[in-house]
């Protein structure tokens, strides 16, 4: 086994910190559930076998 070379530690130090590939949040201080409560959109328009997502959830709850 060899020691770490000086080059390797230099390259490591020069390398940028990893930048996450996810898209940053526009308003990080807004509570998530505030945003979700105010959201009306494609969630309500989506259909699973002709039923809305919330209708699908209601069916699931009825079967619990």
């Amino acid at each position: 086994m060899s020691y770490f070379s000086e080059d390797a530690t230099e390259r490591f130090h020069e390398r940028d910190n990893r930048v996450h590939n996810s898209i940053a949040r526009e308003n990080p201080d807004e509570p998530l559930f505030e945003a979700l409560s105010n959201y009306k959109g494609s969630y309500e328009e989506a259909r699973f076998d002709g039923k809305s997502i919330d209708e699908t959830f209601r069916d699931m709850l009825a079967k619990v």
Binding site: N17, R18, H20, S22, A24, R25, P28, L32, A35
Partner: peptide
């Protein structure tokens, strides 16, 4: 954690949910 380690303004909503 995301703010400190990923140079991002916190978690995006998808990750938070």
């Amino acid at each position: 954690y995301f703010q400190v380690f990923h140079k991002l303004n916190g978690l995006n909503e998808l990750k938070e949910a």
